[in-house]
């Protein structure tokens, strides 16, 4: 009996190992390739053990456009996320605590802007920005990313505010706090976990975003995901530097994402799953 159990659990762990291999191989391959020289990178059979080298990173860090794009990505995703959070927190507070006419219609409207494909918005905005000569500007890119994240940030924050018992808010009123003061001094500090999770998730989404960046950026405002695709040229692709750049782009967001993993699903399903 015990032997059979041991065999069954060994089989179970073998299954888990297979699953992990399937889902992890791309990341492992990317990171290991970034430390390979060009001969090892495409060796057949694939080399999983090799002499590591930092050449690819040196190559990437030598490119001035890489640092420019890195700075752009940090600046644009940070500023757009902060703006988005400010707007979303105020709106979510009202949606969570106030009763007012057409509230459910407003919720549906916000939800529907999450559903609409971004390219629908991109065509008119691109056309107008070309007419006005404001394409390839930080302000426009920041605004677009803020707009992209606003609907989900509002819906996500509503669920966090709803988790705070309304008695706490009423107690603050009894103690003589105004609505604004209650919001800043009572509700926001209590919801800081939710605020942090929303901040990180919209940061990750803005950082990883590609289509808006591809259309709206030029030489000056190019973000990292857009720059990476320019490593593929007609002469062929420089896979070594590309894998180093890919690793460099992905690692901060992976760390962030794992850091808020408990909130990630809640955020990505807009509170439908706790």
């Amino acid at each position: 009996m015990r032997k059979r159990n041991a065999a069954r659990s060994a089989l179970f762990y073998a299954g888990v190992a297979c699953l992990l291999v399937f889902f992890m191989v791309p990341l492992v391959w990317l990171i290991s390739t970034s430390f390979k020289n060009s001969r090892d990178a495409f060796a057949i059979p694939p080399k999983w053990l090799f002499q590591p080298t930092l050449d690819n990173y040196a190559n990437v860090f030598d490119r001035s456009d890489f640092f420019k794009a890195f700075g752009n990505s940090v600046f644009v995703s940070l500023v757009s996320t902060l703006l988005c959070l400010c707007l979303a927190a105020v709106t979510a507070y009202a949606l969570a605590y106030f009763q007012f006419p057409r509230k459910s219609k407003i919720m549906t409207f916000i939800l529907s802007s999450r559903v609409a494909p971004p390219i629908l918005m991109l065509l008119p905005v691109y056309f107008i920005s070309v007419q006005l000569g404001v394409n390839d500007s930080y302000a426009l890119l920041i605004f677009m990313y803020m707009l992209m994240n606003l609907p989900f940030a509002v819906l996500m924050l509503v669920t966090y505010f709803e988790d705070i018992p309304s008695e706490i808010r009423e107690a603050a009123f009894v103690d003589g706090c105004s609505e604004t003061r209650t919001f800043f001094k009572v509700i926001l500090p209590l919801a800081r976990g939710g605020l942090a999770a929303t901040f990180i998730l919209s940061m990750v989404l803005a950082w990883n975003e590609f289509l808006i960046g591809l259309v709206m950026t030029g030489k000056m405002t190019q973000t990292l995901p857009v720059l990476v695709t320019s490593f593929m040229t007609f002469q062929g692709t420089e896979w070594g530097p590309l894998s180093a750049a890919g690793t460099f782009i992905m690692l901060p967001m992976l760390v962030f994402g794992i850091f808020v993993q408990k909130h990630l699903v809640k955020g990505m399903t807009m509170g439908a799953v706790k």
Binding site: V16, M24, P26, F210, P225, V228, M232, M250, L254
Partner: peptide, 30 residues
């Protein structure tokens, strides 16, 4: 319940937070 359950769940998050452009490039090489 099994040993490493939390770790498995964490590792499974990786594909969905990896930058999609980079994932696409990796699959292209694969």
């Amino acid at each position: 319940p099994f040993f490493g359950r939390k770790l498995v769940r964490t590792l499974l998050l990786i594909p969905m937070i990896m930058t999609p452009v980079v994932s696409g490039l990796i699959w292209r090489v694969f």
